[in-house]
Design a binder for these strands. Structure first.
Lengths: 202, 202, 202, 202
DNA sequence: TATGAATGAGTTTTCATTCAT
DNA sequence: TATGAATGAAAACTCATTCAT
């Protein structure tokens, strides 16, 4: 019924798990097929080749993450600190850690021959994040300069970076702890910046 | 005459470069040997096998990084914010990026079968960092509670994480920019904490 | 259609020939594949690895030999000396020398890492031989003691040993000659034993 | 002091052990060297190459066995059955089993490229055995025909074959048991032959 | 006499991929 | 859609041998 047959999506899941845990080079199609319960040759009835399978997994993971981010920023209550919805959602979505782990690993250490397409996708994600954050900050304080906004956009992405690293390689409790401190720092700094810029304006 | 023969250290360098760029699975001994200018069988006169070579590269890189960190914290001028020496040194040592890239990649995505030893080494590094930072903070403000200290130790490690990520996957200018904001946030938050704890004490 | 595909059984044959002539260590999968007319990677579509192939050849050869022995002892005419059918069949089956040579070589000089399984199989074969011979002797003369029976069972196995050695490493004519003398000796001794035990009984 | 330096003879011993247990192909010079406590390259200061080392071990083992046989037959008491001294000596010399195992393995499954020289040596040994036995039988009963003598020479060699197999692949107790029965059979048959030939002569 | 380093040839095994069925 | 069989390429590793020291 669905556009993608059950087998295809089971392959995507198994592939994601293997790629997340062992990377592109460390994952073999035979093992992925075995995890699905089919034979290696059968994979080719669903995907053109290993690269295509990998890129499908990547596109799916990236799309999911971008949509999650978009949703978070869209509905973020104004009383929360800017970007906190997404950060907290990231921690709450601990069950999708496999996908996140895949995404991180792939974004930062893409297989050489797929680097170009992956980098492009990853950058679009970071830009989206940056822009969404800046938009929230602008709502929160209209007075900040373009340069300052960008600066804090970068800082936010840095915090998300460190959060994801903690989340994926440690656990969600430690990630939550890290977020608590990071958020505090971020907000303190933003307030300071806002007050300074206001005084500057005069 | 030197402890490590020239060929052995050239192998270590070439291996580090390959492992950093392509990971354990993506690197082939044939290519590493070719980069050194020897035949692949000759590698086995210097290293027992691929794992041993990899672990030697890891140990060397880890030892270097830990020494660099130790040196930075030891000589850190008190007027600087805690942990800034190492953060700035990290950015300055951009030439050693290959080693750092290897270290990061390996620490966060170790080859499955070497995971145990690598994790152990990596944790020692993080602990060292955490402790050194806490010691600096204690010098800077003796009044902070144990819990607060630990919290900020974790935050510092998070900042170093995000710095390393930026450094390795973008460039040193953007890393410097990220550090500028991160440092500002960190110090603002630390001052806030210090003043709160003092008021608490009373 | 057949239980074993044509290619698989051709591999078994070629492997048997190589293992028989050069032993486990002296045989290379590349040569076996070449003898079959396939590429060495194709072997792995039929057998998990060299050990599995070797053990399959061993099991096949052992099963064949045990069945041949069982058949001989089952239909042995009572007028023949005990065990003569199998001994003579061994010599007649000169065409299956390759299998026999493989079996002997493997039983007495198993590759170290497969020694356990091979020893087990070989011992079952020797036990079968011993028991079958003892049963025939019992038919021939009911009066012999258990101990004497066992003794001659061992002697028979010894004769089969020496016969096989001669058969495999010289030729069937010399083996036939050896059997002639051995048989004469065996029967003479058996008669002597029978007469002694009878006199003992009284 | 001795013609062969201590190291050389230790190499011969280690090589014999390895070749006896694992065969020519299964033994590596590196392991032999390690067993001696020297490095692989050092072997070449003592032996031209693997083949030469192997042949030296073979020659030594063969010479030892031929001398042992010669000595046994020379001093064999006339009251013993012909060939019994050597058979019993074989069993008594259980400590030299390693050498015997090497000799058997090598004689019956020589490495292809050394087959010619080895076969030649082995045949000389068998001929010696045969002739020595025939000479003893002739002493024991002058009346046997040339053909009969040869026949029993072959039978004796067959018995020695089966004895060696038992000795090397089982243990000396079982070999002794086998010899007991075999000897009984041999002597019974010889007496029968002698009486027949005598009656024939008339 | 001993050895560290190097190497060509060869080993088993894995892998992604193809193709007829 | 699934698979058994086949394969070229490449992987890690071993081995006997050489040579300068």
């Amino acid at each position: 019924m669905s556009a993608r047959s059950t087998t295809s999506s089971r392959i995507l899941d198994a592939a994601e798990a293997h790629f997340a845990e062992r990377g592109y080079d460390g994952s073999s199609l035979a093992e992925i097929a075995a995890a699905v319960g089919i034979k290696k040759a059968s994979l080719y009835a669903h995907f053109a080749n290993k690269d295509a399978l990998f890129m499908d997994v990547f596109r799916k993971a990236l799309a999911y993450e971008r949509e999650a981010a978009a949703r978070c920023f869209e509905h973020e209550p104004t009383e929360n600190g800017p970007g906190s919805s997404y950060a907290e959602d990231l921690i709450k979505r601990y069950d999708s850690t496999q996908q996140l782990r895949f995404l991180l690993r792939t974004s930062y250490m893409p297989p050489e021959k797929l680097k170009a397409s992956i980098d492009e996708g990853h950058e679009r994600y970071l830009d989206q994040l940056c822009e969404a954050f800046e938009a929230r900050v602008r709502l929160w304080s209209a007075s900040l300069s373009k340069a300052t906004l960008q600066q804090y956009g970068q800082a936010y992405v840095g915090i998300i970076d460190s959060l994801q690293v903690k989340l994926v390689y440690t656990d969600c409790e430690q990630a939550a702890a890290r977020w608590a401190v990071m958020q505090q720092m971020l907000n303190a700094a933003l307030q300071q910046a806002a007050s300074q810029e206001v005084s500057h304006e005069r």
